[in-house]
Design a binder for these strands. Structure first.
Lengths: 369, 369
DNA sequence: CGCGGGGGAGACACATGTCAGGACCGCCAG
DNA sequence: CTGGCGGTCCTGACATGTGTCTCCCCCGCG
């Protein structure tokens, strides 16, 4: 066992007397939380009335209402969401299962998601599967036991038994995966094929012909981007120049694939990577092979991760409107929670090319080979 | 209202018949979830016995145990965590309030946190305050209503009324902030002062004297790093060369501060930034002013964010063992949940210098000015 | 036959929302 | 003036799904 690099664990100085007066504790840890009953007693009413006041019922006299509110405030009363959930049959919780919290794409998506869910009175619970199907199932299991009102699957297709069963119990939105033939599952994706086309078109405008593609990991998004690349190349009558190498959505994978591509003769003058992270690997490979970007090689990524906007990198890339996608997912989910029998919907957002400094005109003499 | 860039929302094709057979639904959305009662009836026992079996009681005959387990499996029974929480008085939930989910530092910390919490049977609930004190209070309010068993504050010091009150009800761990005079609050930090010393020592070893510091936002971590810088400079008898500029933990802030520093005459030959993100801004400023790194200027960051390891950036930085910190926080919290009356503890981890390519020897003739 | 113990059942508690009904008041008609 | 009626305000009982505790039954053994 590798111990954590902890070098100090010390009790902090404490003034026991201050503690007693500040917290008004009995010395046995946190004080018990006041219940609706305590409020009722203090206000001299029944607990039902307290409930009515707190739920904003109009059939309460102003006199009692004030008494209840005052008592609640004085006691620092906070309704117990657990008990409320039990009787309401709703938890107002949404579970988001993320394939990889590290990917900044998901973080920004979650911003938009949480923002919108919050507006609908829903709270976000995040689980991280770390790309491990076992963790996926376990996290979903936890969500189901908690009786979350909705489920959001990020970069995860419901293929396992557990996940499929989950979608039959709980309104679900899948993000970034297509081809899901399940009812009560809405889908949010960007138009990957169009995004790929934008990238290729941009490179063609700069005179590039030998445009290669590094494919992403086994996911429908990667498949669609590759397909978009192929279609666009053919449309520009560049079918003879089609080159596809396989990467795995990682920087190292991108680096390896780029090495392979750039060792060809003639080598590509431009590379469209499945991913910003992969594109970063391409940049590294280019440096290692003594090629400068964009003079010798143009590079395009996908996602417009904040990485790509860093000055030193300045990567031309395809932007997915992540926040908007998050908001869409929230809207679809709220809708489905309201009426679970709704027809499954597919919401597709439009990607946009962001031109930075990793792309430029084709090198002189490179296209007459 | 700026509409989201949605271009398609279409009903997906559905085979209603398939739906009916697959989901066995009555056409009114998700089927009701089986309860412990349903399992009891199917197994021909009382619900108490089902509970005993599921909780692993030894005083159950093998015959009945099998009957119960079979019935539960056939019904797809999953215990209702809400009801269980209500009776147990524990939710097994931990709320983490993060100042900024975008900062990769927090994401990696959360990895370690979740990993360890999971081992203790606790689940992680994440709230994002976006640096807004109003959001902080609201998120904490939500956590309190949910009756989370523990609270983790990331980059947030409990100063507001609501937060202070929260710590008196709920075991709390604060990460990255010091000087908290509250009971039942444990603290996890790295030794910021030591980290700063490591950075300065490294630069001094390379012959640098005119070493500047860009201070972070108003937080105790930033204050300690600055103090560490000052102490280290004095220890090396470099007090006359002390230069401190203010940044705000953002890339843009770092860029501005670097511009100011690099416009001085004589200008610093090295900059120690409060943060990796700030350091990125310094790199940008250097490029803009025609200075190359590390030939003309050495740059050191803090955090060892994954950003710093990107090949094109390759930033020398001070590593905080984030995952280990996450695990420490989890351990402290579990401990305190077990015994809330524990004395408050401070756990300090040791930072480590990671040398990459943004630092090098002092430029020729720069130190004889 | 009595007693002990294993195995199982029923009742209660957790904190809240809801709903049916009850108390009280005022107004109107007899 | 009084009884009835309608409306307002409030209360008590019940329900949500589970864990636990007490009690009971029955079987086996002494």
């Amino acid at each position: 066992m590798s111990g954590p690099p902890v070098n100090t664990t010390a009790p902090r100085a404490r003034d026991e007397q201050e503690r007693a007066t500040t917290v008004a504790s009995d010395g046995f840890g946190p004080r018990p939380r006041p219940t609706i009953r305590n409020v009722a007693e203090r206000a001299g009413v029944s607990k039902s009335l307290v409930s009515l006041v707190l739920r904003g019922s109009p059939h309460v006299s102003e006199h009692r209402r004030q008494a209840v509110l005052t008592a609640a405030r004085e006691l620092g009363y906070r309704p117990n969401a657990v008990a409320r959930s039990l009787v309401e049959g709703r938890t107002h919780l949404v579970g988001a299962l993320v394939a990889d919290l590290h990917n900044p794409f998901y973080a920004e998506f979650l911003d938009g998601l949480q923002e919108s869910l919050h507006g609908d009175g829903l709270r976000l619970l995040i689980g991280n599967s770390q790309w491990d199907p076992a963790f996926e199932d376990e996290a979903v299991e936890a969500f189901l036991e908690l009786r979350v009102d909705g489920l959001v699957l990020l970069g995860i297709a419901p293929t396992s038994e557990t996940l499929i069963e989950a979608t039959s119990y709980t309104p679900t939105v899948v993000v970034g995966e297509r081809d899901i033939e399940l009812d009560s599952v809405d889908i949010v994706v960007d138009d990957d094929q169009l995004g790929a086309r934008l990238a290729v078109d941009h490179l063609v405008e700069h005179g590039h012909r030998r445009i290669a593609h590094i494919e992403g990991a086994r996911s429908s998004a990667a498949r669609f981007r590759c397909e978009g690349y192929l279609v666009a190349m053919r449309r520009h009558a560049l079918a003879p120049y089609i080159m596809v190498e396989h990467g795995d959505f990682s920087e190292e994978g991108g680096r390896r694939a780029a090495h392979a591509l750039l060792s060809r003769d003639p080598r590509p003058t431009a590379i469209f990577a499945a991913n910003d992270v992969v594109a970063l690997g391409v940049l590294t490979a280019a440096t290692e092979m003594g090629l400068s970007v964009p003079e010798d090689l143009s590079v395009v990524g996908y996602d417009n991760t904040h990485l790509s906007s860093v000055h030193h990198i300045s990567l031309t890339t395809v932007d997915q409107p992540r926040r908007a996608m998050g908001r869409s997912a929230a809207a679809l989910l709220s809708d489905r929670i309201g009426d679970p029998a709704k027809v499954a919907r597919l919401r597709q957002v439009t990607p946009q090319l962001v031109v930075r400094r990793s792309t430029g005109p084709v090198p002189q003499g490179a296209d007459n080979v």
